Amino acid sequence: METKILIAEDEEKIRHIVASYLVREGYRVIEAGDGQELIDKFSQHEDASLIILDVMMPRKNGFEVCREVRQHSDIPVLMLTARDTENDEVTGFNCGADEYIAKPFSPKILVTRVKNLLRRTASGDLSDITLGQLCIHYRERAAFIGTTQLTLTPREFDLLYYLAKNKNIVLSRDQILSGVWDIDYVGDDRTVDTHIKCLRTKLGSFGARIITLRKVGYKFEWNNETEHSTQG
């Protein structure tokens, strides 16, 4: 079965370069020159495996497109932007993006990110986790606090699962990158901090359990609580 990728990029040269690299890897690429065209094409190709979005586009920008896609799909979304600031990254992740690459970028690195993102979001066969009111159902890719389901991107879900699975263990940023982003992740570890910030917000009061250890990393703290894990 072919793997279909949608690309929305208003700079034709960049779009064609990215598309050509992905085609060489065996992917089928559907191109769009702006955000609205991407939305239109996604409605015709809802079996696509991944979306690549430029942020600054006419008609609809990447943030708007990502929000609209997230209303009815959890397809992985990788965003491209010329604005390399933490606020922009947070905005992208809050819109539901799973990956964020700043321009200029190497097409080879982009292809690596695409491969890793597709592999990470593939269904897994791991046990569910219950920590008090927090329930994480791995196969269903769903997490709940009590009866309320959390709205998480695929990356945020993987990060929460990894932290909860390793509760009370201090994890360095490199360990988190290896465990959640894969060992061959290319990029700096600031993306870990950005994702942790977004995840804490979505967890509400539960987010206080993600402890920062300065210059070391993070720990999901769970002391003297009852944990119950069931096979998914």
Score class of each variant (00 low, 15 high):
Val192Glu: 11
Ala97Trp: 00
Asp182Asn: 15
Asp88Lys: 03
Ile109Ala: 14
Gly179Ser: 01
Asp128Pro: 04
Arg173Leu: 11
Met79Lys: 12
Leu163Ala: 08
Lys165Thr: 13
Phe144Cys: 00
Leu177Val: 01
Ile196Pro: 13
Asp189Ala: 15
Asp188Phe: 09
Gln133Ile: 08
Phe93Val: 05
Gln175Asn: 06
Ser205Asp: 14
Lys219Leu: 08
Trp181Pro: 07
Asp182Gly: 12
Leu131Glu: 08
Ala164Thr: 13
Arg141Tyr: 02
Gly217Gln: 00
Ile129Phe: 08
Asp125Lys: 12
Ser178Val: 03
Thr194Tyr: 00
Asp189Trp: 15
Glu86Leu: 15
Gln133Thr: 02
Gly132Thr: 05
Glu89Ile: 11
Gly132His: 10
Ile109Cys: 15
Gly207Thr: 06
Ala208Phe: 00
Pro107Tyr: 12
Leu160Lys: 05
Gly204Met: 00
Ile129Arg: 03
Leu118Pro: 06
Gly92Lys: 12
Asp188Met: 09
Gly96Pro: 03
Asp98Met: 00
Arg155Asn: 11
Tyr218Lys: 06
Gly204Val: 04
Ile176Cys: 00
Ile109Ser: 12
Tyr162Ser: 08
Asp84Glu: 13
Val111Asn: 00
Gly96His: 01
Ala208Glu: 02
Gly207Asp: 00
Arg173Thr: 12
Val180Glu: 02
Asp188Gln: 15
Lys103Glu: 01
Asp125Pro: 10
Gly179Thr: 03
